[in-house]
Design a protein around this nucleic acid. Structure first.
Lengths: 97, 97
DNA sequence: TTTATTTGGTTTATATTATAAACTAGTTTA
DNA sequence: TAAACTAGTTTATAATATAAACCAAATAAA
């Protein structure tokens, strides 16, 4: 009846990050931070978790002398996101109009 | 960009309970327990939270000599659920086919 | 008939999670 | 060269979720 909701995705901030990356494919840490309004610390932790799960790939480099963290969604991440959305929809049996 | 997701509803079990009550309006504790596959303890806690928030009303009585807890969704609960669904949909910008 | 089991829960202790505060490392500006 | 800023990470704390332990009454079994 109620399928499990992937706990890695069922978190406001991580879901926002994945949602962003689903549409733009890759983005800088600072861009994600701005769009999600998260604190750097919180974002850093959540990005690490998504990376550890293999849902995103993270590339660290430099841009204009400053460190730059690039995040890219992985095929596994896309799959997980799609599965999560499907599961979630079972819960959202929208109220009849 | 990413609206806040009501933390009271952004919880697998509480969301399942609300989802059930949205469609059946009222249900017994044991019925909800069976449908959600939750443990009694966990369900008891989550129902208390929904009640405290005013999202559901709880009526305790007896049925066939045994205690019976009836849960009913409230107008406030319906409103909150609908708002949550709308907010959530911003996160689920479904991947292009 | 008293003891065991079942029903229908609640309370509480623990594990997990989320989050911000504090910190690191380097860069630019004054 | 000191102050302020960029771009993060680490860590301490607060909040949450969850199951284990518990309770009270009813029924079934010995």
């Amino acid at each position: 009846m109620f399928e499990e909701l992937d706990p890695l995705l069922h978190s406001q901030l991580r879901l926002a990050v994945m949602s962003l990356l689903i549409s733009v494919r890759e983005a800088e840490f600072t861009y994600i931070k701005e769009k999600t309004q998260a604190t750097a610390g919180n974002l850093s932790v959540q990005i690490s978790k998504l990376k550890e799960a293999g849902y995103i790939e993270v590339e660290k480099g430099f841009k204009d002398n400053f460190p730059q963290t690039l995040c890219r969604i992985s095929p596994k991440g896309i799959e997980a996101f799609e599965k999560y959305v499907k599961a979630l929809q079972q819960y959202l049996n929208l109220p009849k109009p």
